[in-house]
Design a protein around this nucleic acid. Structure first.
Lengths: 228, 228
DNA sequence: TGAGATTTGTACGTATGTATA
DNA sequence: GTATACATACGTACAAATCTC
């Protein structure tokens, strides 16, 4: 997959800060010969960079590097990036147990009430600060080999690579909420502080729910940029 | 732009409910001959449909129609869609005036303090319910011909087509907040109700801020779906 | 279980259109 | 007006994943 290699090479230069924000890349002809690929292939790499807000282009003008705030990470990143994030940061496992599905969970997972579910809570530390509380449920039937140790790394990576399931999509719902006392204590904030909450429903093929996660952020802001 | 026409034709069928959710489209060969375009062109149309979550595809398998919840509208839609939305719904203009930039606004717009700004508030009615309160500032210098009447339609459409500016990007910040009494009254909710707030910074080329808008939703939920 | 057919994905080449400088 | 640069469109070939018999 040549276009991926080209994409990664240019992306690496951009995130390393090689180019100043708003600076212009070489033209498509120049870039394609530099990388030894055809122009359509080079364009596919640029297309991917545009989708991810690393660059933008204007017909007749050129291809331009976006400033970092356009592509900086946030919790709305695509499911693919969530799975393959190598640096899954620090995960502290607060609780891990098996439980039984209550009515709500049974309905979500399309299981009988009382069906066994893994239930765990994790905390994520970003830049030394407690930043995200996460509470997750997953059906035991789909993941017989799942253990507490897997929670320390990327669970989605486990789902795809160790358990061999194919992830189809992730439905994310953002809402605001006031922190309760326990949450505030863990996140080192004031009770009643308004913060954001992101619910993830991660589905396999054929609409099978594999994971339900509720993330509580200490931050009350999420930013995304869309390019014209 | 043939691929846009193909894209629109397929999209129209999907939103009209012609295909059941999860149903399979014809193959790329069949579709390209049906529409009288080449396979690369057909693929570009499909690519756009995939980006906007109308369909998904799997190598060796086929192209499949997504269920409506994947593509239903929300305030995180792309800037292009916000501009061209023909059906800009009902806009009730609550206030319209010229004001002078305070320190914060002057900094945002990179203007002198006291520079003239349009300032208006609108309310959007969706399905007969008051759904969004919106407060907007725009620099008078960029839009000498702007009037209150323009607020009743799509202001972004005015920016691009009547004022002749080129919109570059839209930086969106989502946060949670508790409604104050006035907001609660207008949105027919309880004061203290937690709802979502979306700030938009709409930029022209060369990072010129053209519009700063704060939307307050009555809803406390926003959903997006990302496909693997 | 395995081989073959089907379907989408990748890659190259080429020509022409269109916006910008 | 001219040159440059990105955008669109067609054709072709092969690779890789999936499905079917």
């Amino acid at each position: 997959m040549k276009y991926i290699e080209v994409y990664q090479a240019i992306k690496a230069d951009i995130v390393a800060g090689t180019y100043p924000a708003w600076s212009q890349l070489d033209g498509e002809h120049a870039l394609s010969s530099q990388f030894g690929v055809s122009r359509p292939t080079l364009r596919k790499a640029i297309e991917k960079l545009k989708q991810e807000s690393f660059v933008h282009s204007r017909q007749g003008s050129g291809i331009f590097v976006n400033p970092p705030e356009f592509y900086q990470d946030n919790n709305l990143t695509s499911i693919s990036e969530r799975i393959n994030k190598d640096t899954d940061l620090k995960n502290i496992v607060l609780e891990f147990s098996q439980t039984q599905a209550n009515e709500l969970l049974a309905q979500k997972f399309r299981l009988e009430e009382g069906a066994p579910l893994y239930h765990f809570k994790r905390m994520r530390i970003i830049n030394g600060e407690p930043s995200i509380l996460e509470e997750t449920w997953m059906p035991v039937a789909l993941f017989p080999t799942f253990t507490e140790a897997h929670c320390e790394q990327s669970v989605l990576h486990f789902v795809e690579h160790s358990a061999g399931h194919n992830i189809s999509h992730d439905a994310k719902t953002i809402s605001g909420k006031a922190l309760n006392e326990k949450e505030a204590f863990l996140l080192r904030a004031e009770p009643g502080h308004i913060s954001l909450c992101i619910q993830h429903h991660v589905y396999l093929l054929h609409s099978v729910l594999a994971q339900y996660t509720v993330e509580t952020l200490v931050s009350n802001e999420l930013t995304t940029v869309s390019i014209r």
